[in-house]
Each structure stands twice: as structure tokens, then as C-alpha cells.
Amino acid sequence: MNSVHTREPAAGGRDWAVEARGLVKTFGDNRAVDGVDLNVRAGTIYGVLGPNGAGKTTTIRMLATLLRPDAGSARIFGHDVVKESHIVRQLIGVTGQYASVDETLSAWENLIIFSRLLGLGRQEARRKASELLEEFGLAEAAKRPLKNFSGGMRRRLDLAASLIAQPPLIFLDEPTTGLDPRTRAQMWDTIRRLVQTGSTVLLTTQYLDEADQLADRIAVIDHGRVIAEGTVDELKASVGSSSLQLRIQNPGDIEVARQAVERVLKVQSIVSPEAGKITAPMANADLVADLLITLREAGIRLTEMSVQKPTLDEVFLTITGHGVEEDASDEAKQEEAM
């Protein structure tokens, strides 16, 4: 959708935490990232939204100097990720999808080692470690080996480790995937507080909901390309705030029903014939009454009607015309190649 491509011109200088141009990364035949542009303003939360295997993690890994781009360039606060990687590493914190902490050590030992590596003195490292453990509610479990940690605790420790040096830019790769709702809400709070201290956060997520809650701007990414970019409101406006789903009793009526939907609601709809289902964005709820009357007059019977808030799936449907393809094998291949 062109309407959401309201990208601001990229100005060089310190205003931009991230400026990426045409990033490409290929694993074998798989173009995991296929020309990604991103601009993230300092002091904001930026969400990269996309399904599994869309290239989110690969993009973050290139921005975080963990992977070398095959083509394109990226600058972090004006510093090139390839040529000035050592400087870039002084400006970022990375929290990966899979906790990047030492499983054999305790939470305390992990934080001490990372602090020492970051140049903190012995005393300073101890102070920092206990401070962070306290803040992230891990003080009690500090000396226990990580093997007994829950996913949420691990994720919190991982984030704590990324904050030791108080980096101005923090990458969070799917920070809440696999967390229970309560832990997820805690993580969201933590991320919001981070930005209040002046940090910039770039996070990836599979959930529109999460991007909605946190991000100032969002890039939707699919098959290694940015397919839409804008504020959450712009993005949602393009999808319609909610979608209407109709299940038609008689499959023969589905074409007539679709025409009625498009005529009355004045939108494009998507038909899944095998399920006898019509999905349409519902920009104006008031028109639905008219639609139902039209269908009744045409003698089309419904088995089910529901209204759904937009999901990532709908965003994709609207923007790309195809749904989220759960392509697990691609993802697996990509993991292996890394």
C-alpha cells in the first residue's frame, strides 16, 4: 500500500539511531533479506513486524554487527556497521530471540563477566550486577544455575545483560515470544521505561498487538522486504480497524455475497471458497447493518458472522494480497546457515 509509505527523507547526522539502505543477506538460494531500508529516529521505539522467516532476525543481526551484509549499508548513529563495527558495538545492546546468556553459570556470574568485559572494575561490576538483578526481580535466584530458570527469567536476565553499559540503542529480537501474558506485560513495561531514559529501541515481533502497544513506528517485513512503513495508526487505517468475517451457508451463493459485500462496504474482500468464508475490512461499522439487510433480501443465509480486530494475518492480506505463510522449513534452513 503506497499510502503508508510515508517515509521521511534520511538526514545524515545524530538524529537517526539506525539508517539502513538496501540491506541484502543470502543464505544459499534463500534471499533472507532482500533490500531492506530502515530509518529509526533516536529516542523512539521502532517495531519490525513480520511472520516467521520474514528476515527480521537476519536484519537485526546485520544491524548488530553479528552478520556481514552481502549488499547495502547500515549506519548506527552515523557509524557504519561494517567499517566501524567496534564503535557500533559500543552503542548497542542486543537481546536475541534465544537468550544469549551462559547456561552453565549463575545469573550473578553472567552479569559479572559481561560487566568485566565491558570494562567495569571489580567493585563496579558487583554493584552493577546486584543493581540489575534487583531491578529485574532476579535477586533471589541470582546464585542459582540458569538451567532451572523459566523462559521469562532467562529473557529478563538477557535484557539485564544488554543494559549493563546503558547503550543508546537496544535491539530486542522477539522479546516476548513464548512468554505468558503476565510476563509479557512486565516486559512491555520494562521496554517503555527504557525509552524514558533516552534509549532507542528496535524490536521485532510477530504480533501486531505488541507493535501497537509499544512502537512509535512500524515496518512490516515479508520475504526479506519492507512492504509497509509508517506509524501504527497509518498502518491500521490501511487495514481497516477491524475485519468482518462471514460464513455463507450455501457455497453457491458465495460469489453473489462477495459482490454484495464489496458494493455495500465499498472495500475489497477476500474469499476462501473451501471454508465458505468472506473476510472484509470494516472501516465503517455502520454500513454492516446495510450489508446484512442486503444479504437477507438476496436470500443469502449466513452460518456465522464475526468481527475481528486486525491481526498480522489481515495486515498481510491487505498489504500483500496473500496471507502469512508459515514456512518452517525456510526458517530452519536459515538457522542452519547462520
Binding site: 563495527s85 567496534h86 564503535i87 559500543q90 531491578e135 546503558q166 547503550p167 543508546p168 524514558q196 533516552g198
Partner: peptide
Amino acid sequence: MSSLPITPVSELQLKNH
């Protein structure tokens, strides 16, 4: 979060090696 605000990038001393 630490209550301390982060140091602006322009004030950091950065080395590439």
C-alpha cells in the same frame, strides 16, 4: 531501569579498535 539517563552519543568517546 536505572534512573540515570543514558549519555548522548555525541558525548561518548569511541574507538574503532
